[in-house]
């Protein structure tokens, strides 16, 4: 049985592509044949985050238009077995994606034995975002602990519940909340929404919390999914997300303030 998972958020810049790259690389590293598709037509970036930008020959839209086969367009990752990337097109044609074309590609991937098909959604609620979520069985909603991101996530949840194929057929998409760029220090200080508050507001189950970390930028600089950095807290937090997605019940990490040793005067004077 294959599963289609959309990584979405509504708001831009919250970490959809970073999360798609890490999540799909994590699934593949555990032996699951995984494809990750960039739905951001016109502004592709998944190829860059995954470090395969120089290997793009054909793209998503070429396959839909019959200009290339799916096999020709899929880029096989050289670091992780079982991982394949389908880049978006750089065309400015807004109608490049259509339901029939997307469905045929997803069906072909399923027939090819792909267990997980991860759809990296563009920001917004336009056609690309709609196409990315339409065929989804499950959704990872990426949210920053910040008001506009939480509000946009709620909008996307509404669209998932009403306009996805599963919803049209009377079912419901399984939703997961992924909080990224979390700073326990700032939550403790009362400057940042806490994860419990976000879960309460959006009322969907939490699949993970990724701490704010410099290694995320380093990973994208070098074109390696951050999950491959086993030392970094963000990488480890993504590993936990993959474990939970696969059904393991493991506690959250990196969500509490690290206890730092304070000097004598610091203790007294704060």
């Amino acid at each position: 049985m294959s599963k289609v998972i959309v990584v979405t958020s509504g708001k831009g810049g919250v970490g959809k592509t970073t999360s798609s790259a890490a999540f799909s690389a994590g699934l593949a590293a555990r032996g699951h044949k995984t494809a990750v598709i960039d739905f951001d037509v016109g502004l592709r970036n998944l190829d860059l985050i995954m470090g395969v930008e120089r290997r793009v020959i054909y793209d998503f839209v070429n396959v839909i238009n019959g200009e290339a086969t799916l096999k020709q367009a899929l880029i096989k990752d050289k670091r992780v077995d079982n991982l394949y990337i389908l880049p978006a097109s750089q065309t400015r044609d807004k109608d490049a994606l259509n339901k029939e074309g997307v469905e045929s590609i997803i069906n072909e991937l399923k027939a090819d034995g792909f267990e997980y098909i991860v759809c990296d959604s563009p920001a917004g609620i336009e056609k690309g975002a709609f196409m990315a979520l339409y065929f989804a069985d499950e959704a990872i909603v990426v949210t920053n602990p910040e008001v506009s991101s939480v509000r946009d996530s709620d909008r996307i949840l509404g669209i998932l519940q009403s306009r996805s194929k599963i919803a049209e057929d009377g079912g419901s998409v399984k939703e997961h909340l992924l909080i990224t760029r979390y700073s326990p220090d700032r939550v403790e200080g009362g400057d940042m929404l806490g994860m419990d508050d976000i879960v309460e507001i959006l009322s969907i189950p939490l699949i993970g919390v990724i701490p704010e970390s410099g290694t995320v930028l380093q990973a994208s600089n070098s074109g390696n999914p951050v999950i491959m950095d086993k030392e970094s807290t963000a990488g480890q937090a993504y590993e936990d997300v993959v474990s939970r997605f696969l059904g393991e019940d493991i506690p959250l990490r990196f969500v509490d303030v690290e206890i730092k040793k304070k000097g004598f005067f610091q203790k007294i004077f704060g």
């Binding site: 008001v147 929404l193 309460e200 507001i201």
Partner: peptide, 8 residues
């Protein structure tokens, strides 16, 4: 943060 939560 509490203010943000209430507004949201």
């Amino acid at each position: 943060a509490n203010l943000a939560k209430e507004r949201l």
